[in-house]
Structure formats: C-alpha cells, structure tokens
Amino acid sequence: MSRSGLIISAAFCALALLAPWLAPYHPKADTDVPLAAPSARHLLGTDDVGRDILSQVISGSRISILVGLIAGLAAAALGLLVGLLAGYLGGAVDRILMRTVDVFLAMPRLPLLILLAAYLGAGIWVVVICFVLVSWAMPARVVRAQVRVEKQRPYVTSARLSGARSIYVLRKHIVPALSPLALAIVIMEISHAIMIEAGMSFLGLGDPTATSWGTILHHAFSYPALFLSDAWIWWALPPGVCLSLLLLGLALLAMEVERKVDPRIEGGRLGG
C-alpha cells in the first residue's frame, strides 16, 4: 500500500504525457456514427456526436492533470507564503492575515466558484484563478500553526536570540522543517484542484472546449436517454473511474508524505 499512491499518480502522469501517441483518434474528431457500442474500432464506443470515447478519456487526463498541477501549485504556493509570514512574523501581520483566512474559509467554496465562473466566463485559466482564490486559506492556516511550533523549538529560539537574521532563520531552520508538510500540502491541493475542475466541468462551468474527464461526464449525464440503455457503462463510467483512481492515488501519496512528517497528523489536517 505504501507505494500504491506513487504508482497510480505516476501512471496517470505517463498517460497524460503519452496521450497523443496512445489515443487512437483525435478526441474531437467525429469518427463514426453517434452512440456506437464498444467494438474493435472503438473500444469504448462513441458518444452522442460520434467521437471516440477512449480517445477522449485518454486525452482528458492531460487537461485534468495540467489544470491540477497549475492551480494546485499556485494555491499551495500562496498558502505557504501567507502561512510562513503570519506564523513567523506574528503580531499585527499575523492577525490581519489570519482574519483574512477566516473570511475565505467561511465563504462557501462551491457557490463562490459558481459565482466567479459566471462572472469570468468558462476557461481553463478561470478555473485556475477561481481555485487559487478559494483554496489558499486552508494551507495558510496549517502552515502557520506548524511555523509557530517550529519557532518555539530551542534551536530556533537560540538562533534568533544570538542575532541571526530572519531570512537566515527561515531558510536554515524553518523551511527545511516544513518541507515534508509543504509537499503534502502541494499534493493535496493538486488533488483538490483536479476534483474542482471536474466538478465545475460537470456543472457546465468548466472549459467546455477542453476535453477533460469532467466535460465527458457532463455530456454523458446530460444525455437524456443515458440510463435507458447500457451506454453509461462505457460512456460515464470510464472517465469517472479514472478521476476517482487518480484522486485516490494522490490522496494515498499525500498520506504517505504526511506520515513521514508526523504520524500524529496523518490524513487529518488536510482532509476534507
């Protein structure tokens, strides 16, 4: 189990990188009659406009992972920075930043995303910006708490008392101590970003021109007769399974990293 997170995540990254060579067709090409059942030509059949579903699922990994990486990294970076500043500087800066965090944590996340997407229109960058806006606060709070713990450690205190500059203390003692936690945060944020991108696409608020797993699910579930036949098995299930598997892989990976940080906090602090 300990390696499975890494293996799953790596496998999907490989799939995304190799997508153009692995996918039998271009994901947007209308290759056959609509709603064809699986066959040798189309292993997962075709969707309602005759596009090859397997190719869409394979190419979909690219959008999901790309959006996840960009948005997740950006949100984690912002959160880390804020948490570091607030935790290390303390005082008024800390109070202002943490109240801002409180405001953002109290904003209901999905309704906020729906509003922002409605305002900015749908597009990959919109998803990224929206995600960063609503997702930096949680890691900021976690990091701040950890920084405060680190700050109290005897060797940090003594370094500060002996006149070391803040930058030095941060770089030498605090950041290294934080890095496993930071890694866990980055992974969790990436996985949240992937989940949010899929969710927004499912609601029709993502970038509908980009073939992501969420978009495939959106089209499948808005097809009225989906459940009147077996089409859901090869149309809705594969993108759903891929999405779930990748998210599971990332969650396991994050848990593994977190366990290395501190067995006491495993899975807990970043959960949800």
Partner: peptide, 20 residues
C-alpha cells in the same frame, strides 16, 4: 470553428453561462 477554419478564419470558442 472547424468549418470556418477551411476558409482561413480562426475562431476560438468561449463558453459562458447564459446570463453572462
């Protein structure tokens, strides 16, 4: 967009909610 490309017109699709 696909068909307009045949006569050299590049179109990028921008999708927004109906209200927007």
């Amino acid at each position: 967009a696909e068909q307009a490309r045949e006569i050299g017109i590049e179109i990028s699709v921008h999708s927004v909610p109906a209200s927007t």
